[in-house]
Design a binder for these strands. Structure first.
Length: 574
DNA sequence: GCCGTTTTCGGCCCGACTGTTTTCAGTCG
């Protein structure tokens, strides 16, 4: 898969071109836009080329004849001549240097020309000799800022899980509201769009006491230091290792600001182009016709004035949602309240932390009317997997539990391990007795694609599987997906009527948003499950819902939006 | 270097903050 490699090279070319006198800023932007396209592609770019040639590449947004040639050059030779030439001209580690907060390509090249700084190590040496502060255009403050920037990079891990970031953003918003200094505070940015990882937090506040709000904000206990502080925008570094922006907004600008700061950047660029086409100007302060502000009470009204339907934040990624909005075909996305049950949970009997009764209580408190308890099977020793006898005894306890319940039911199930050879880790007889059979891969993850695809398909072809859990096995920021041909997987699921799981665990979110979009083209249904191992994990459902919405999913494609009766009919539970 | 319900040429999103400057370039989102 060359996508990330090529995207990185294009970004580096853009950075190097931005300091090159022969290049225009628009050429720079062209490389950046192409890098973004390639970096967020769902399919390996070499496959796109193999299937459709240069023409297929040129169909990608921001990629024309020249850039298509450069991509082909990389696929064929592993090199891009233009990049090699630029590197010769400017032999510096531009990627590392510009990753320092406050350091762009121009500063990096000045440091190279004046001090011979090629990488972060050189930069550290220059700082220790206090050479930077003596350069024209730089000063004492620049030097210490760069030093701080290097420190921040070395201690930060880059992006962070939505499941870690969202609660902190919510806490900051709550504290701002409690301060009495703001009339409203909301989360914007990628956190509002429910992206699976978040690079920084964006918060908007409504207030006419700007200075006081900023003072309050910079003194919050989550804050470690201040990066920039102004009356309308302040940036701080949080103790958890990410930055957080606070913008204080005037009431008449609030809707426009929320739209603007929610992003994505790519979505906004397209929306602003449409505004211009319609004789408007859209920025963070409002929608303008000439110099006159057009009164809008909500984000929805902004989209409406531009001839579009309201676009939910989770869809704002410039993946075709703007066209849909123009045609008024935005689907009614699934919501948290649509879920009636959870079909993937664990108890103490395998590797969960709580009892059957405790899990049921917690699910009820979340407004659910059924759960399936799906403990691990015997081969998964590390998770205390259960054997046939263990399940039989446990199922008797579930029967007893259900006798006492009238408006809630626990379904009998298992998360059956798919063994290395594709066979299932429990007897056929027991599996057939179960209400909900989840199959999953937990071991031998490094098979090649063909082998892994066959292994999974063999399991699905038994006809015994209801749901395929966390279908790619990835752990976000930790482990890549195992290699599997997604198209054949979805075809096999369609053939065998197997439901694809959207696992809501914050470090799984598997299927991902892009895989959901891909899977939606097949006649398959989905289940949004928590994989809860303790009562507090039911909280994770909102991340699964967020991911499903990012995959444009509607309620009718998700089986655990069905009430118990309909679900039992669908899964043929007697 | 890309792109077209104004265009195959001439546009390309736009404003805040900072540091080092005396009016602005660089960086960021």
């Amino acid at each position: 898969m060359f996508n990330k490699l090529i995207a990185d090279i294009f970004n580096e070319i853009a950075a190097l071109l931005s300091i090159d006198e022969n290049a225009s800023q628009f050429e720079v932007r062209a490389y950046q836009k192409a890098a973004l396209t390639i970096g967020t592609l769902q399919e390996p770019i070499e496959d796109i080329y193999a299937k459709g040639g240069k023409e297929a590449l040129q169909k990608l947004p921001g990629i024309g004849s020249t850039l298509a040639d450069r991509i082909i050059e990389y696929i064929k030779t592993g090199k891009i001549e233009k990049y090699e030439e630029l590197k010769k001209k400017y032999p510096i580690d531009i990627k590392a240097l510009t990753s320092i907060e406050g350091m762009g390509a121009k500063k990096a090249i000045t440091l190279y020309k004046k001090l011979g700084v090629k990488n972060i190590e050189d930069l550290k040496k220059a700082i220790s000799r206090h050479e930077i502060s003596k350069l024209p255009g730089f000063g004492e403050k620049s030097e210490s800022l760069i030093e701080k920037g290097i420190e921040l990079i070395e201690q930060s891990k880059g992006r962070m899980l939505l499941g870690d970031a969202l609660p902190i953003a919510e806490r900051i918003v709550e504290e701002l509201k409690k301060s009495g200094l703001v009339t409203n505070a909301v989360i914007a940015g990628s956190t509002r769009r429910m992206r699976e990882t978040v690079g920084d937090l964006d918060i908007l506040a409504l207030s006419n006491r700007q200075e006081e709000v900023m003072d309050f904000f910079t003194r919050l206990s989550d804050v470690s230091n201040i990066i920039a502080k102004g009356p309308t925008k302040t940036t701080v570094w949080l103790k958890i290792g990410m930055s957080c922006d606070l913008r204080v907004i005037e009431p008449e600008s609030f809707s426009a600001a929320l739209q603007y700061f929610t992003g994505s950047k790519e979505h906004n660029i397209e929306v602003r182009k449409i505004a211009i086409k319609n004789g408007y100007k859209l920025n963070e302060y409002g929608l303008f016709k000439g110099n006159a502000r057009v009164k809008v009470k909500s984000e929805a009204e902004i989209y409406e004035k531009l001839g579009m339907q309201y676009i939910p934040p989770e869809m704002r990624e410039d993946r075709g949602e703007i066209k849909l909005a123009m045609e008024h075909k935005i689907p009614k996305l699934i919501e948290l309240g649509d879920l009636k049950g959870d079909l993937h949970t664990h108890t103490k009997e395998s590797d969960g932390a709580n009892t059957l009764e405790e899990m049921a209580e917690a699910a009820k408190a979340k407004g659910l009317s059924y759960i399936a308890v799906t403990n691990h099977t015997k081969s998964l020793k590390v998770s205390n997997g259960m054997d046939e006898k263990g399940f039989e005894e446990f199922f008797k306890r579930i029967d007893k539990f259900n006798e006492k319940e009238d408006s809630f039911k626990v379904l009998k199930g298992a998360e059956v391990d798919i063994l290395q050879d594709g066979s299932l880790d429990l007897s056929r007889k027991l599996i057939e007795e179960m209400d909900v059979v989840i199959a999953a891969i937990h071991s031998h993850l490094s098979m090649d694609e063909e082998e892994m695809t066959m292994r999974i398909e063999k399991a699905l072809d038994t006809g015994l599987v209801d749901i395929f859990a966390h279908p790619t096995g990835r752990l976000i920021l930790e482990r890549d997906p195992y290699k599997v041909n997604m198209e054949s997987l979805f075809e096999s699921a369609e053939r065998n009527n197997v439901v694809m799981e959207i696992n809501s665990f914050p470090n799984r979110l598997d299927l991902s948003d892009t895989n959901i979009l891909l899977a939606s083209n097949y006649k398959i249904n989905f289940a949004i499950n928590t994989d809860a191992h303790r009562t507090s994990h039911f909280e994770f459902l909102r991340y699964g819902i967020g991911t499903a919405r990012r995959g444009w999913l509607t309620k009718d494609r998700v089986i655990n939006t069905l009430d118990l009766k309909r679900l039992e009919k669908l899964l043929e539970i007697t």
